[in-house]
């Protein structure tokens, strides 16, 4: 296993959320005064259903528009930090900045095969201009190896065909994210619906990514995953982060037990 916490020091990107409010139909769903994500390599984000975890992630991606407030990405070496205000940018700019999110609800391209999906994810804009009608070969040449590694690692049944089961689609969603080479990866229940051995593989891939300097935030209801993989855990309830700390502390905290875990969990 890779020892993430003691990996050589790299400057990890951070995301700072300030005074961020989001409401749907007049009901406030997320209201966060101040939150910094990315202090630790892998951070868990837990909380009851409807706490606002997915919405918070969508606010970071700016696929949900903020009512007010600001989301900032901080990256680069300590002495020369670069700040980008994500909440001023369109969603499609996030991937280019290395900010990537997987989807809780299954999202897929029905008309594209698994190979297509991977090549789409891998293709930089220069390959996709309308006049570049001969760029499939160079794209394949440059990236097929990478795609193949993931296809083998996760042992997809027939990558030239379409993703069949819900699990396969879920996995494909994660692989698409990984191929974007994220610097800040948000995972929204990545292992829900996956068989155990694949959950293990996904976790292994995430650990590897984190050890290479990517900041990971993971939402999961499977708490065994959270306790085992997170360096730090945020507990969210009613649109707010009410606690953060090492997994062990969160696990034993009264509020968390009352609001989420239920008695007898510890």
């Amino acid at each position: 296993m890779i020892d993430v916490a003691n990996a050589p020091t790299v400057t990890r990107p951070q995301i700072r959320i300030e005074g961020a409010v989001k409401s749907f139909a007049g009901r406030v769903v997320v209201d966060i005064d101040e939150l910094v994500l990315g202090d630790s390599p892998i951070e868990g984000l837990i909380g009851p259903n409807g706490a606002g975890k997915t919405t918070l992630m969508r606010m970071i991606m700016h696929s949900a528009k903020l009512d007010r407030g600001k989301v900032t990405l901080r990256r680069g070496p300590e002495e020369d930090v670069e700040e980008v205000v994500l909440s001023d940018l369109p969603t499609h700019r996030m991937a280019g900045l290395g900010v990537v999110k997987s989807n809780q609800v299954i999202m897929d391209f029905e008309k594209l095969t698994i190979w297509d999906s991977l090549l789409l994810s891998l293709a930089a804009a220069k390959y996709e201009h309308p006049h570049r009608i001969f760029s499939e070969a160079p794209l394949f040449e440059a990236h097929a190896e990478e795609a193949r590694e993931y296809l083998d690692f996760f042992s997809f049944a027939d990558p030239t065909g379409f993703a069949q089961s819900a699990g396969e689609k879920k996995l494909l969603d994660i692989v698409r994210c990984l191929l974007l080479k994220p610097r800040f990866l948000l995972l929204d229940e990545p292992t829900a619906g996956l068989p155990d051995e694949l959950t293990e593989k996904v976790m292994e891939a995430i650990r590897r990514l984190a050890s290479e300097g990517t900041s990971v935030v993971i939402v999961e209801h499977d708490l065994n995953v959270i306790w085992s993989i997170s360096d730090e855990v945020h507990f969210m309830a009613e649109g707010n982060i009410i606690l953060r700390g090492p997994p062990q502390t969160i696990r034993e905290n009264r509020t968390v037990v009352e609001k989420y875990l239920g008695e007898g969990h510890v």
Binding site: M61, A95, F109, K111, Y127, E128, P130, I133, F134, S135
Partner: peptide
């Protein structure tokens, strides 16, 4: 040729699931 190029794949992705294409960094 477009059908056999990354551009065609992009067009299909945009038509198929635009939010997903956007989240992969495509300027839809």
């Amino acid at each position: 040729r477009v059908h056999r190029s990354p551009y065609g794949r992009l067009l299909i992705a945009v038509g198929d699931n635009e939010p997903l294409a956007r989240s992969l960094g495509k300027p839809t």
